[in-house]
């Protein structure tokens, strides 16, 4: 490789990074701008961040976002872990097509997932309306006839798109595990459930934690799927930001976006550092 070539290489790399990160960099800088402008720098201030804390709409949506992320992560982690164990116990002929089915939602365009979930909920609510009307006519006790999308549907949607990430992160840990460990535990007096708590869980814990962190990250920064499934009564932070931009992109949006960006960045960094450390540990174990 000659010098000229290596210069071009570097230039190309710099350009890639500029295009990737300049917008975010700009956004972060202007979130600290003293003035109202998104183009002219008028000095450093934390005004916009202070304003955020007083904005009830934003605080409410931060609360919604955290609640839906935490709940969906918790539920998806439990469900995904058991699903992964189920996959692990299957014969390969059955497992591989099912794993492909599991992976599709992650590749699938968010908008398709969002719209299809929305359709599902609407269809279900219609059916429910008919069922509830019939049930109420029996006169046992009353069921609500009209259900609408809101926090519940938002939560279900988040659980749905989180589960595959947990499965994907727990599965490899199970496969790395010595397949005789469960037999050994049962040989020494454990029932299957005791073997799960005492032997499988400690072995796959790193995978579960990574899966949960990934799921949480996905939940926090999801916009498209939430938009289609939250209805009008619940609003996540991403949705609120989107709503605010309809009027005008204020530096307040810069500030809240910066906070969201930093949160997700930290979470991703934790996930990656954990994975790198486990990789090293595993190599050490193999040596």
């Amino acid at each position: 490789m000659n010098k000229n070539n290596s210069f071009l290489n570097r230039l190309f790399m710099v350009l890639v990074f500029v295009f990737l990160y300049a917008p975010i960099f700009l956004l972060i800088i202007f979130s600290f701008n003293a003035g109202n402008s998104n183009t002219v720098w008028k000095g450093f201030s934390l005004d916009w961040y202070q304003k955020l804390l007083r904005d009830r709409l934003i605080i409410q949506s931060v609360y919604t976002t955290l609640l839906v992320s935490l709940l969906s992560t918790a539920i998806a982690t439990v469900a995904g872990t058991f699903a992964a164990i189920g996959f692990y116990a299957m014969r390969r002929k059955v497992r591989e097509p099912l794993m492909t089915v599991n992976n599709i939602p992650m590749m699938n365009a968010d908008i398709v997932t969002g719209v299809s979930l929305c359709l599902l909920f609407v269809a279900f609510f219609n059916g429910w309306g008919t069922f509830a009307a019939w049930f109420n006519s029996l006169g046992l006790f009353r069921l609500p006839t009209r259900l609408t999308m809101g926090f519940g549907t938002l939560l279900i949607a988040h659980i749905t798109f989180n589960i595959p990430y947990v499965i994907l992160s727990v599965g490899p840990k199970l496969r790395q595990m010595d397949k005789n460990l469960v037999d050994a535990a049962m040989d020494l007096g454990c029932t299957w459930m005791q073997a799960f708590w005492k032997v499988i869980l400690p072995e796959i814990k790193p995978g579960i934690v990574s899966g949960a962190l990934t799921a949480f990250t996905m939940s926090i920064d999801d916009f498209v799927i939430s938009y289609f499934t939250a209805g009008s009564s619940a609003s996540t932070l991403a949705m609120t930001i989107y709503g605010m931009t309809k009027k005008r992109v204020t530096p307040e949006i810069n500030a809240i976006s910066t906070l969201l960006f930093v949160t997700v960045l930290i979470l991703l960094a934790i996930v990656n550092i954990r994975e790198a450390r486990q990789e090293r540990l595993r190599e050490k174990r193999l040596v």
Binding site: D178, N180, L181, D183, A184, V199, P202, R285
Partner: peptide, 8 residues
């Protein structure tokens, strides 16, 4: 067990 299957 083969390869011992000690609890790591």
């Amino acid at each position: 067990f083969q390869k011992y299957a000690l609890f790591p």
